[in-house]
């Protein structure tokens, strides 16, 4: 028998880490820098034009702060789905 309290103490290894993809719509982005400044993992970095890019998307925790605070509707965070062959077309 496990009590509810024991159930909540799962280790990180027990849970499968969820992965996220962050897509930036650069045509609408004005490079205000809000997403870069407030990202808790500090993985959103500026490219040469000052617009955001992510080099290591596996570190994203999916908090969606950047998506919620983008004034220009230019960021979408989505859970990563397995790659399928039709994506390669």
């Amino acid at each position: 028998m496990t009590t509810p309290q024991e159930k909540t103490t799962t280790t990180a290894a027990d849970r499968k880490k969820k992965l996220y993809d962050v897509s930036f719509y650069h045509d609408w982005c004005k490079a205000c820098g809000i997403c870069m400044a407030f990202c808790p993992r500090e993985i959103i970095l500026a490219d040469r034009a000052g617009k955001p890019e992510i080099t290591d998307p596996d570190r994203c925790v999916g908090c969606r702060f950047c998506e919620l605070h983008c004034p220009d509707f230019a960021i979408t965070v989505s859970e990563r789905t397995p790659r399928r062959r039709r994506n390669d077309v």
């Binding site: 045509d27 609408w28 982005c29 004005k30 490079a31 205000c32 820098g33 809000i34 919620l68 605070h69 983008c70 004034p71 220009d72 509707f73 230019a74």
Partner: peptide, 16 residues
């Protein structure tokens, strides 16, 4: 689009 507001303007966040 993008809309007329300055980069980083809170109006966009409020609109969302």
């Amino acid at each position: 689009f993008p809309h007329v507001w300055c980069p980083g303007c809170g109006n966009g966040i409020i609109m969302a």
